[in-house]
Design a protein around this nucleic acid. Structure first.
Length: 558
RNA sequence: CGGAGUAUAGCGCAGAUGGUAGCGCGCAGCGUUCGGGACGCUGAGGCCAUCGGUUCGAGUCCGAUUACUCCGACCA
């Protein structure tokens, strides 16, 4: 390709707006261009890279026995209603109506569609298991796009769906996919961590995210120092350290407490540690039911864990007037006397303290020596606390470290979630009986992966593409040696080398800078200085050397 | 959806107190250059986001709308 004819130029003056280096480099280099917020053009250079990423993913998926196909982008809305995901994922589901009033969802993920096509075939156990996948544009009506390609409203995703007779058979595929993903990311030059995470609106019981560590990543997760435990903040467990659980229970009392509404105000007034305070947070679920979350004062409520424990679809913080309506007071809520009025959910950390202190459900009154079991009971007890750096790992053997990362892919156990919700999602088993499919799904966002590669492979001058996904292998530059370059270009093309020749009559400096920005693996220079030779330099190295054309061809063959 | 801001040439910006638009980069032509973002001369390019007011006259004042950016909330 001649650079003078390549659509999409370098543009140094452009400001991408985003602080993410990948966004800046990809925009400056002419790989991508924003259309509107969260929607991008992939220009010829960017598209070539994405296609190469796609090829790597396809190669590994096919090796793992998965089969590529394609589903319509517009999904009949009835399918989403069948699984109730118009409610659980409705906030980011794009919808369109055709001229006959037919309602469709612009697919953001395609579980329903794949179940729907499979159930059309009335399969038997002999057909199982199988894994079918597609590369297609996904739509997410994100409230806010950010970080260039890292969070967008429209992107190409590889999504795979596997169908099994039972959990045991599924687990083999799940492990195989985890292995396949690890290989894919290795080939793409990304080091990933497999992080246990929450299934969210996708459904199912467990899943793992593939996270690339990055200080500005959106995902926060915890890893134990000994490396044995790794989980997303949504679900990260930790051992509660024992506080004063051995103490004897003192007499419950209510005292005057003229103070502000914060936890710290309570600590200062009573002169007792934060962990001895009992924290009460009022939530409301999607039906408007109020839930009182009770937890040790030094911990925070993890809404995802709470939501999962309650099996609630949505949670929000309760409003002040809802708290007044209960006969309580914001800032002075207490679980004592709340039984029957709200659902009281307690964290297991309440079992590590005695003689706690908290509000007394009226303004400027606090309760002292509050004890679980004696002064109040729980309707539900479980793990609803947010892990933090330095907390004990679940086995109590080491401490948790906090990490941030970019989620480049994920694998989900779906179990019977979809096959139970959707009619006739059954196969005929050996015994002649119809049984629901046991399922899994597996996604990789291509644009996000591309951006993550740039985040990990660049220097102050530009991108440094790994060889197997670089848009071209060779960047040929001539400094007033057009004829010589023409001959080399022709020879390389004939040898099947992917070469980008900067044939513009630009100054040398401009060409070198553009070359560094674009980041192709090999740079070849011909000029007066190189004489009959050609300068060979790798983008990832600083040393250049002079060799002849035969040697260039020889090296490129390797 | 809350809070803050922006909208003038492809991009980045300037245009006190109202008088029909300018700079830098980029782009085009010619010439001189050429190993790290070259220089000179010439030139093209704008319904000043949209709609509606005030005014003899609006990029500028007022109102509404839309889009975008940032911070929240939400989320592969």
């Amino acid at each position: 390709m001649k650079y003078s004819k390549l659509f999409g130029k370098t543009s140094y003056g452009d400001q991408s707006g985003s602080g993410m280096i990948s966004h800046q480099l990809l925009t400056k280099g002419g790989f991508i261009r924003e259309s509107v917020a969260g929607r991008y053009f992939f220009l010829p250079l960017g598209w070539r890279v994405q296609e190469k990423i796609k090829a790597v993913i396809k190669d590994e998926m096919d090796k793992a026995g998965a089969q590529e196909m394609i589903s319509p982008v517009l999904h009949p809305l009835e399918l989403w209603k069948e699984t109730n995901r118009t409610n659980t994922a409705g906030f980011e589901l794009m919808q369109v109506t055709d001229r006959r009033g037919g309602e469709f969802a612009l697919g953001g993920t395609a579980e329903e569609m794949f179940v729907d096509v499979v159930r059309k075939f009335n399969l038997s156990y002999k057909d199982l298991p199988f894994n079918i996948y597609q590369f297609s544009t996904k739509f997410r009506d994100e409230l806010r796009a950010r970080g260039g390609l890292l969070r967008v409203r429209e992107f190409v995703m590889k999504d795979a769906y596997s169908f099994h007779t039972d959990a045991e058979d599924f687990k083999k595929e799940y492990d195989k996919m985890a292995e396949t993903y690890t290989k894919i990311y290795q080939r793409l030059g990304l080091e990933t961590r497999v992080v246990k995470a929450d299934n969210g609106y996708i459904g199912g019981e467990y899943c793992h995210e593939f996270q690339v560590e990055h200080p500005e990543g959106e995902g926060r997760f915890f890893v134990s120092e000994d490396g044995s435990y790794c989980a997303h903040e949504d679900i990260a467990e930790f051992a509660r350290d024992e506080k004063n659980i051995g103490e004897t229970e003192d007499e419950y009392q209510v005292v005057d407490a003229v103070r502000g509404k914060t936890m710290n105000d309570g600590v200062e007034l009573h002169g007792k540690p934060l962990w001895q305070q009992i924290k009460n947070v009022m939530f409301a679920d999607e039906k408007g039911n109020l839930i009182l979350a009770v937890i040790r004062g030094d911990l925070d409520v993890n809404e995802t864990k709470l939501k999962n424990l309650l099996k609630a679809a949505q949670l929000r913080a309760a409003e002040d007037n809802e708290i007044y309506a209960l006969g309580s007071e914001p800032g002075f809520i207490s679980p004592v006397g709340m039984k029957g009025k709200v659902k009281i959910v307690g964290d297991i950390s309440l079992r590590t303290i005695k003689n706690g202190y908290t509000g007394a459900n009226q303004k400027n009154k606090d309760a002292l020596n509050v004890n679980l079991g004696r002064d109040f009971d729980l309707d539900l007890e479980g793990d609803i606390a947010m892990a933090e750096a330095g907390f004990l790992s679940p086995d109590g053997q080491s401490k948790l470290e906090e990490k941030r990362g970019i989620e480049v892919g994920n694998i989900f156990q779906l179990g019977y979630h979809y096959s139970n919700l959707m009619k006739d999602a059954n196969f005929v088993d050996k015994d002649g009986q119809k049984k629901p499919y046991y399922m899994g799904c597996y996604g990789i966002g291509l644009g996000r992966t591309l951006a993550t590669i740039v985040e990990k492979h660049h220097d102050e001058k530009g991108i440094i593409w790994p060889e197997n996904i670089a848009p071209y292998q060779v960047h040929l530059i001539d400094i007033n040696e057009n004829e010589k370059a023409q001959m080399i270009y022709q020879t390389l093309i004939e040898a099947g080398v992917e070469v980008l020749w900067d044939d513009r009559s630009e100054n040398a400096g401009r060409k070198f800078n553009d070359s560094d920005l674009l980041g192709l693996p090999i740079r070849l220079v011909v000029s007066k200085k190189t004489g009959d030779q050609i300068e060979w330099k790798k983008r990832s190295e600083t040393q250049a050397e002079l060799i002849n054309l035969d040697q260039v061809l020889e090296r490129l063959k390797q």
